[in-house]
């Protein structure tokens, strides 16, 4: 309580809340919650980024395989059909040598390409923002050259995206659960505080204190505890990024947070927002709890 006289009146406590045992463990519990929420949030950002990257690289890149014995005229027709399709930016027929080079790792350089019935490959780039009706396109290509195969990353990506959405849902639910847990803990702490300090609270009432005067003390206290938890949890989350980032790089692990530089402004925004939110949620919860409890007192 040293220096209490120097505190602005808004932060002055008549109730000895700072001595309550609850004040000792609450910041740590909140810190754990904030840590989980922050790491979850970082994972969310990573997931969004990764999806965007895939959108740009994978959706736009397709490969068409044409059976080896297809005539040049038919190949031209296929290329023409592709280029006329809306959304296709470019279709480039790889020369047999280029195809061979691509396959070299599997075939070995000693094998003569001329002796092998290599399929012809067409590198197709599409505009990721245009929805292409792949079913119709495939049918069309198949009528020109039977056995033409269009690898569509898009369908595969749709599955990934769906999965990613589910993961996002789980993380969001996790963050909500964490918030609910903080609320619950603060509600109980505030109620315990009200019970412990009942005699002083009664005295404050007899001296004419409005409910808001008493609630403010719990509010200020909870804000302090919440912010403390926010700082501890945020620091831990930051440390995780700092440590796991290079480590993941070293072992080439697909750890989400490894994708983040510590200078990413979104990381900082996330940490600050989670920390402040912990304080805000704790403060608001304490206020509402105390006001509701006091309204029941005579």
């Amino acid at each position: 309580m040293i220096g209490a006289a120097l505190l602005p009146r808004q932060f002055r406590l008549d109730l000895p809340l700072r001595r309550d045992a609850s004040g000792r463990f609450l910041p740590w519990i909140i810190a754990l919650m904030v840590y989980l929420a922050a790491v979850g949030g970082i994972a969310l950002i990573w997931l969004g980024d990764t999806l965007n990257q895939w959108d740009e690289s994978l959706t736009s890149k397709l490969t068409l395989q044409i059976p080896a014995d297809t005539s040049a005229a038919r190949i031209d027709m296929v290329l023409g059909a592709l280029r006329q399709t809306k959304g296709v930016v470019w279709a480039y027929l790889l020369a047999p040598e280029e195809t061979a080079k691509l396959l070299e790792p599997w075939l070995g350089s000693s094998v003569s390409i001329a002796t092998l019935p290599l399929p012809r490959l067409v590198d197709v780039r599409v505009d990721p923002h245009v929805a292409i009706d792949y079913a119709t396109l495939r049918q069309q290509l198949d009528t020109i050259v039977q056995g033409a195969q269009l690898d569509n990353n898009g369908t595969w990506l749709a599955g990934v995206r769906e999965f990613a959405l589910r993961v996002e849902g789980v993380i969001t639910a996790g963050v909500l659960a964490v918030t609910a847990l903080i609320v619950t803990i603060v509600v109980f702490t505030a109620r315990i505080g009200l019970a412990i300090h009942r005699t002083i609270i009664e005295l404050l009432h007899l001296l004419g204190a409005q409910d808001s005067y008493i609630a403010r003390q719990f509010q200020v206290h909870a804000l302090g505890l919440g912010l403390r938890g926010g700082v501890i949890g945020g620091t831990a989350a930051f440390a995780t990024v700092v440590v796991l980032g290079p480590a993941a790089h070293m072992f080439a692990l697909p750890v989400p947070i490894a994708a983040y530089g510590i200078f990413d402004w979104r990381l900082w925004l996330l940490l600050i927002v989670t920390g402040l939110a912990a304080g805000g949620v704790a403060m608001l919860t304490a206020r509402i709890t105390v006001l509701r409890q006091l309204a029941r007192m005579p």
Partner: peptide
């Protein structure tokens, strides 16, 4: 109402039988 009660209480000074001083203040 409650707020009025508190306003009325602020016009009253009470010396309690057991003083009721706040120990930590």
């Amino acid at each position: 109402d409650r707020a009025t009660h508190n306003a009325l209480r602020r016009r009253i000074g009470i010396v309690f039988q057991d003083f009721r001083l706040v120990e930590h203040l």
